[in-house]
Computed example of a mutant assay.
Amino acid sequence: MKLALFDDHRLGVVVDGTALVDVTSALPWPHDPDPVTAGWWRRLCRDRAGVCDALARAAAEGTRVPLERVRLRAPALNPSKIVATASNYADHVAEMHGVQERTLGRVEAWMMRFDVFLKAPSSLSGPAEDIRLPADVVEAGHEVHHESELVVVVGTGGRDIPESDALDHVMGYTMGLDITVRADADRSRRKSYDTFSPLGPWITTADEIGDPSGLEIRLDVNGEPRQDVRTRDMITKVPAIVSYASRMMTLVPGDLIFTGAPPGVGPIRPGDRLAASISGIGEMRLGVR
């Protein structure tokens, strides 16, 4: 099942990648359109298995609305945190030596090791929004890079989750861009500007994806291929990432985990058009300004 948030943060089931059916009324609890107080969303992430039959019936019986007639929102509401994974593809680690030499004048060895860090939830934006480059960053001449990634949407959550059980705690998967300023500053600061976490176009539930290690991630800038990789090339796979993160912080339903940048990162500039896709999930087309 593919679940989208649209218009006034209503819940839709995407059909054939071309339309959606509004299934908000099939939820067994009240729908709160305010993203700040929308606890219904976290409850859906936690309890989706118990309502999936009702959502499927509503999708089969409801009216299909073409996607071009709705405004898709980021498929996440007020997550308690965005966890991001660093240095999780060997070829990306290799390319970052050259990127850091060019942008910092040195290589930071500690940044070449796998780990996790946090991004501000306020950096989230949806598939209908442009990426906005901060004026001070542009004026300072810093490069701003795209990083297209598979994103885990936490379901039941928990702490100290065993790697063997980790996928049972996943509600689904979506696509995210970890937009990054290349400068001499903390990762969280450089990656947390507004619109620096585009997310979408919807969530494909975990039961439909199955094993997340066989997905293809692609990103083009102005029609030029930049990134093309399979998730099986991750150094640390999704179950291990979920388990590792849960040892440091309790994962809460609706939290997001960016699983790491594939190789092929590069600068984006005002006027660029980005097309990003992940097999089994969908595609986003974003502008830069």
Rank of each mutant, 00 (worst) to 15 (best):
Lys2Val: 05
His9Pro: 00
Gly12Thr: 09
Thr18Trp: 05
Thr18Lys: 09
Asp34Gly: 05
Asp34Asn: 08
Thr37Gly: 06
Trp40Ile: 00
Arg42His: 14
Val51Glu: 00
Cys52Ser: 11
Ala54Thr: 03
Leu55Trp: 02
Leu55Asp: 02
Arg57Lys: 10
Ala59Ser: 08
Pro79Phe: 14
Pro79Gln: 12
Ala90Thr: 13
His92Ser: 11
Glu95Phe: 11
Val99Gln: 10
Val99Ser: 09
Arg102Asp: 14
Val107Phe: 06
Trp110Leu: 05
Trp110His: 10
Val116Cys: 15
Leu118Asn: 08
Leu118Glu: 12
Ser123Asn: 12
Pro127Val: 12
His142Tyr: 10
His145Phe: 14
Glu147Ile: 08
Glu149Arg: 02
Val151Arg: 01
Gly158Val: 11
Pro162Leu: 11
Asp165Cys: 07
Tyr173Pro: 00
Gly176Val: 02
Ile179Asn: 04
Thr180Gly: 06
Thr180Phe: 06
Arg187His: 12
Ser192Gly: 11
Thr195Tyr: 05
Pro198Gln: 06
Ile203Gly: 02
Ile203Cys: 05
Thr204Trp: 06
Thr204Phe: 08
Asp211Glu: 07
Ser213His: 13
Gly214His: 11
Gly214Gln: 12
Gly214Thr: 14
Gly214Pro: 03
Ile217Met: 06
Val221Ala: 09
Arg232Trp: 11
Val238Ser: 12
Ala245Phe: 09
Ala245Gln: 06
Met249Gln: 08
Thr250Gln: 10
Ile257Tyr: 03
Val265Met: 14
Pro267Val: 15
Gly271Ser: 04
Ile281Lys: 00
Ile281Trp: 01
Ile281Tyr: 01
Ile281Asn: 01
Gly282Lys: 00
Glu283Pro: 00
